[in-house]
Simulated scan of single mutants.
Amino acid sequence: MNLPKYLLADNSNHPEDIFILHTEFPRFLINLKDDEIEWFEDLSGEREDDIASEVSNLIEEASQFYDGEMAKYE
């Protein structure tokens, strides 16, 4: 199966939250409500400056993905 890079997710137990799942390395789930991230990868041993830059880019991409998805509903 070929997964999309980002998936939009919700959960009825958290009706105010908006989740984006990133399916490629480094895999993570971000709550766009508060930008809290749950990592599914162990990033220890990676260079901090590389990780910080990559994480910043991925969060921006996740936000753009969400905005694009919501624009399709309008």
Rank of each mutant, 00 (worst) to 15 (best):
residue 8 L to H: 08
residue 9 A to R: 11
residue 30 I to D: 00
residue 5 K to A: 06
residue 62 A to R: 01
residue 33 K to D: 08
residue 32 L to H: 01
residue 56 S to T: 07
residue 15 P to L: 11
residue 43 L to P: 01
residue 34 D to V: 04
residue 48 E to M: 09
residue 28 F to E: 02
residue 45 G to T: 00
residue 72 K to A: 07
residue 49 D to K: 07
residue 25 F to T: 07
residue 69 E to V: 14
residue 30 I to T: 00
residue 38 E to F: 15
residue 64 Q to P: 03
residue 19 F to P: 02
residue 66 Y to D: 09
residue 40 F to L: 10
residue 67 D to S: 12
residue 29 L to N: 01
residue 60 E to M: 12
residue 25 F to P: 02
residue 67 D to H: 10
residue 37 I to G: 04
residue 31 N to C: 00
residue 65 F to W: 03
residue 21 L to E: 15
residue 28 F to I: 00
residue 11 N to E: 12
residue 51 I to R: 09
residue 9 A to L: 14
residue 48 E to W: 11
residue 42 D to G: 03
residue 36 E to G: 08
residue 70 M to F: 01
residue 37 I to C: 06
residue 2 N to G: 08
residue 71 A to F: 14
residue 69 E to F: 12
residue 72 K to D: 05
residue 58 L to G: 00
residue 41 E to S: 02
residue 11 N to Y: 12
residue 59 I to N: 03
residue 39 W to Y: 06
residue 70 M to D: 01
residue 15 P to M: 10
residue 59 I to P: 00
residue 65 F to T: 01
residue 62 A to T: 04
residue 50 D to C: 04
residue 42 D to H: 03
residue 46 E to A: 08
residue 13 N to A: 13
residue 41 E to H: 03
residue 57 N to M: 07
residue 9 A to T: 11
residue 72 K to P: 02
residue 67 D to N: 10
residue 15 P to D: 07
residue 1 M to C: 07
residue 58 L to H: 01
residue 30 I to G: 00
residue 36 E to V: 13
residue 64 Q to Y: 15
residue 60 E to S: 12
residue 54 E to L: 09
residue 45 G to A: 05
residue 26 P to I: 08
residue 45 G to Q: 03
residue 48 E to T: 09
residue 33 K to M: 09
residue 74 E to W: 13
residue 27 R to I: 05
residue 29 L to K: 03
residue 53 S to M: 13
residue 32 L to N: 00
residue 46 E to I: 06
residue 28 F to V: 02
residue 11 N to F: 10
residue 37 I to Q: 05
residue 29 L to Q: 03
residue 33 K to L: 11
residue 69 E to C: 12
residue 55 V to Y: 04
residue 4 P to S: 13
residue 59 I to L: 10
residue 64 Q to C: 11
residue 45 G to H: 03
residue 64 Q to E: 15
residue 32 L to R: 00
residue 29 L to Y: 01
residue 70 M to T: 02
residue 43 L to Q: 01
residue 14 H to T: 14
residue 22 H to W: 05
residue 13 N to G: 08
residue 20 I to N: 07
residue 36 E to S: 15
residue 8 L to K: 14
residue 57 N to S: 07
residue 24 E to G: 09
residue 5 K to N: 11
residue 39 W to K: 04
residue 7 L to P: 04
residue 61 E to R: 03
residue 64 Q to K: 14
residue 1 M to T: 13
residue 74 E to S: 09
residue 62 A to D: 04
residue 12 S to A: 15
residue 57 N to W: 02
residue 57 N to Q: 11
residue 55 V to K: 14
residue 42 D to N: 06
residue 69 E to K: 14
residue 61 E to F: 00
